[in-house]
Design a protein around this nucleic acid. Structure first.
Lengths: 214, 214, 214, 214
DNA sequence: GATGAATGAGTTTTCATTCAT
DNA sequence: GATGAATGAAAACTCATTCAT
């Protein structure tokens, strides 16, 4: 009995935790970190303030947990795409697709992620949150880099530093998506996706291929 | 004598204003908007709180003034570069140079600019600050776009949407510079500059040119 | 046990509330609204500032609650007197007695009531407080008027507009009591009470009655 | 020359002083004492703050001067009426006329007078302002009392304490005028004036006269 | 374990008054 | 003498966090 009881409790606890985070995300998106009070989160989750403090040691901790959880989810989505073996070019396209979709689907989260990423002394690596986000970002860059490297070895891409190329690709995606965000999604984002793909490939595909395809 | 008296006062006032903004920038960079109190700014500037409120009607106003002033300075630097008539390719190179340099020289400012840009429901165009930043950004995109368009007409660049291309270029620059920022300027940023230039041109120069240069 | 628990809490809360109001009244009487800080009320009540703000949403609200509560108490006292069926003349006498006693017992409250009544553009009916006070006053005038009307119908009083007469009676009472207040209660207020009664009756009783009684 | 220069300066000074008081009265009426800043008065008078402080040693002093000046004007109006020798009854009527007219013409002033009169410990006789107002009021009561006394000696009024009668008359006037004020002058005040007169006389005239006139 | 009342440090902002020019 | 920039004490109010029940 006891053996089953704890797991159930644990499951419940995890569920409650995720409920709190979901509500908090909603509120932070809507009003910004400083304009949301613990009291408000407590009321909306229908947990007591004391219970919230059982789950998270303070407001900052709750916020960190929220960001990290989301960032890991996004990371997993990207990982999945990168782990599906396919033709290199298709994989890059899938990556661009996945990233832009994640961006579009999580606009508000992305917004607070950016704020947090830059907030308080930039990538403050002393902060737990800062470290985790830095690592997740660097891991992604490396994974994309290794994909691009494979493409270079297959002579499909020009001989350029693959880590730099992955930064370039990330920059392209972010640039377009921020522009889309700035103009409040006034046009279908798919247009941007195809442009990103076109620009990136026309710059990276090795000359011969370019001529063949062109 | 009287003729000079007012200008001196005005000059002094402007100087004091800039001093306050400089100190405030320093503090905001260091601790973030919400962790800096007016009292602290007053103490550090060695002005009284009341004097601060003579210059700026409230904390938000001081912050806005800070951001807008800096953003306009950056805008002017870019404008200057874009107004010097030269060979298109050199002008693009100069633009990349200028932008990366501005970025490097104003790391901390860029950081709080990003936060502000995304803060509270993204580009909140209802805010004066939000509107001003949005406009400055769009103006820059258009200027770069018109430069690139000229290049396209001169058959130096591929036939791609020039506005989109300017977003792409912006994305590339930001991507690299953020990466550089994230790694706290661990390597000379000039390396990034040349990579940005290379990637951008290899993707944009019209096919013939590519073949000749490759 | 549980059944009693909530009521006890509620009772305690009500008690605390009344304690705060009592202390606040004391302070406002002593120093005036603008010269009493929330901090001071908190210190004197031995509650924290935060607790005060749990009871009242701001300083104005605390003040309003204070005035309205007192005004309603006074209103009830008057109501009680007016509801006891008796000979008309005795009822009027009782009313004068009750009013002067209330006045005497609540000198300081009356003072701030007057201030509030006249404060900021007179009976500002837009304010909740203003409305409530206005209504309470008008209600009282009407009740007294209907009492006097009965007297008129019974031919005990002269045929004068009863509403106007109630204003006159109120004016008489206030005039004497303010004079008494101004001279800091230098003489027993009962002297004033009998004078008010005499003047009012000799002015209102119909000539025949006057002759009979005189 | 010097002999004439000072008087002109003095005249100018007095004029400026009255200008300041006029503007201040306007502002205090409109917004209340605590919502008007010295800065605002300075701006509206087109004098500098420093100059204002040359005329009045502080805000309270300016306020006192304002109230006292007005109160003395009112006092003079009443004095004039009371000094015109006439039939007693006509003089009382004139007094009621004058008082109600003053009330009507100075509604806003009366309002702040009441506030001040009751503000901060009621008739605080320690304050200069308090003392002056108290004295002015008592003087008026005495003058009216001596008028009424004459009427009693002439057997025109009942044998009642004339000082008390003067309080009663004052109370009647104030009661009606406050009611009129409370209802924002919704009806012509002359109606009240005649009612005050009627009530006061029918209550004060000796029975014989009443019978004769009735 | 859960609760939420109580805390009070800390924030932004105002404005009467002074005094160097 | 006139000025008005500078001052800074003091106010109202918020909210993360604690801890007795």
């Amino acid at each position: 009995m006891e053996v089953e009881r704890l797991p159930r409790k644990a499951r419940e606890k995890a569920f409650h935790r995720s409920q709190i985070l979901a509500v908090a995300l909603e509120l932070f998106k809507e009003k910004g970190y400083h304009n949301v009070s613990i009291h408000e989160i407590a009321t909306k989750t229908e947990f007591s303030i004391g219970t919230l403090y059982k789950f998270f040691k303070n407001k900052e901790d709750l916020y960190s947990a929220l960001i990290i959880e989301k960032a890991e989810t996004v990371s997993q989505i990207v990982d999945e795409v990168l782990s599906k073996k396919d033709d290199i070019e298709n994989m890059v396209k899938s990556y661009i697709d996945a990233k832009t979709k994640v961006f579009k689907d999580n606009l508000d989260f992305i917004r607070i992620l950016i704020i947090e990423t830059q907030k308080e002394k930039g990538f403050e690596k002393k902060t737990h949150l800062g470290k985790v986000l830095h690592e997740l970002h660097q891991e992604e860059l490396k994974k994309v880099a290794s994909l691009l490297e494979k493409g270079i070895r297959q002579k499909k891409f020009k001989k350029l530093n693959p880590y730099h190329l992955s930064i370039a690709l990330g920059g392209l995606i972010d640039g377009f998506m921020f522009n889309w965000l700035e103009n409040s999604g006034s046009h279908p984002y798919e247009a941007d996706v195809s442009f990103i793909t076109e620009v990136f490939f026309s710059g990276c595909l090795s000359p011969k291929k370019t001529n063949l395809s062109g």
